[in-house]
Amino acid sequence: MSARNINHEIIEELYSEALVLADDARAAFDLRFQDNAADCNDLTRVALSIEGLRTTTRLMHVLAWLLNHRAYMAGELSDTQLEHCGTLPEERQADADNLARLEPETRALIEESERLHARVARLDRERRADIAVKMPVASLQGRIAKAFATG
Rank of each mutant, 00 (worst) to 15 (best):
L102T: 15
L59Y: 00
L63I: 09
L109N: 06
T80Q: 08
V137M: 01
R127Q: 07
L102A: 15
T106E: 07
R122M: 13
L99R: 13
H61W: 00
E126W: 00
E83T: 14
H117L: 05
H84E: 03
L109A: 12
G52V: 13
E103T: 15
K134Q: 05
E126H: 01
G52C: 12
Q141E: 07
T56I: 11
A132Q: 05
Q81K: 01
T55Y: 02
L88P: 02
L123R: 00
I110Y: 07
M60S: 11
A138C: 05
T87Q: 02
I50P: 03
L140F: 14
V133G: 08
H84Y: 07
L102P: 10
H69K: 04
G142Y: 05
A47T: 13
A47Q: 07
N68P: 03
M60E: 02
L116A: 10
R127T: 12
L99M: 14
E83F: 15
R125E: 06
D95W: 04
L102K: 12
S113E: 06
S78G: 07
A118N: 05
R119G: 00
R107E: 11
E90C: 14
E114A: 15
S139M: 06
A100T: 07
R122N: 10
A64M: 04
R122A: 14
A132S: 13
N98G: 15
T57W: 04
T56S: 14
D95M: 11
Q93L: 15
L99H: 12
I50H: 14
A132D: 09
L102W: 06
A47Y: 09
L109K: 06
